[in-house]
């Protein structure tokens, strides 16, 4: 009969109208500034730099200014200058590290290619700015965030990264100890370096306490 299709459709809208009062499947809107969605752990928007020591956010950046991310970034929005001492020797840390996040397209390629786990993706999305030219050009002071912050954003990933870094550190310490052992042990003050298994061995070259493991 002509009109049954119409009536059937109206029945569906009526069902949805009633359902929107009690069925969470049908009531899906959210009053945004008051209520916020919980972001998934993998959510990414713009990169930040990880530092290990909260007291020295610029000195303890993991970044060694190798410029791999600068080369790989598709829209070329990273700009890095290596820090050098008076003699021109590279200090393995960035003097300038700028990301123009008005150009950045949140692709995460910089994170993927960084061999030192120094750059990670942030989740802060309310970034409206009134300064048109400098407001979205972030310098290393603004980019530097603590490892604890990284743990807060991406707990699983950060725990894996910490484990990996601890392992690398242990390997390096072991290699160093093995090298140092045959040479006449000079004034070795600390524990005898002949036990590779315990990972964060308090070796002489690590004055800072190692970062705490995953909370």
């Amino acid at each position: 009969m002509l009109g049954t299709g119409l009536l059937q459709g109206l029945a569906v809208t009526a069902k949805n109208l009633v359902g929107s009062f009690h069925d969470p499947e049908r009531y899906v809107t959210m009053e945004y500034p008051e209520v916020k969605t919980k972001l998934p752990e993998n959510y990414r928007n713009f990169p930040f730099l990880v530092h290990d020591d909260p007291k020295d956010p610029l000195g303890s950046l993991r970044c060694v200014a190798c410029t791999i991310c600068e080369t790989e970034c598709p829209p070329q929005c990273i700009y890095i200058v290596m820090d050098r001492d008076e003699k021109g020797k590279a200090l393995k840390r960035p003097k300038v590290f700028d990301i123009d996040i008005s150009v950045c397209m949140s692709c995460q390629i910089c994170v993927e290619v960084c061999p030192f786990d120094a750059i990670k993706m942030d989740q802060h999305y309310e970034i409206a700015e009134t300064n048109r030219f400098q407001g979205l050009l972030l310098s290393r002071e603004q980019l530097s965030k603590s490892n604890a912050y990284y743990h807060q954003l991406h707990p699983t990933e950060a725990a894996a990264v910490d484990a990996l870094l601890a392992e690398q550190k242990a390997k390096q310490a072991a290699a160093k100890a093995a090298k140092a052992a045959p040479a006449a042990k000079p004034p070795a003050p600390a524990a005898p370096a002949a036990n590779p298994p315990p990972p964060p061995a308090p070796s002489a070259e690590a004055p800072k306490p190692p970062t705490p493991p995953a909370p």
Binding site: V28, P40, E41, N42, Y43, R44, M105, S106, C107, Q108, I109, M121
Partner: peptide, 18 residues
């Protein structure tokens, strides 16, 4: 929206999954 949420929790982005 439900599918986009799935993409977001997998890849990190709703539409630009990469």
């Amino acid at each position: 929206e439900k599918i986009l949420d799935l993409f977001e929790s997998l890849s990190g982005s709703r539409m630009m999954c990469n």
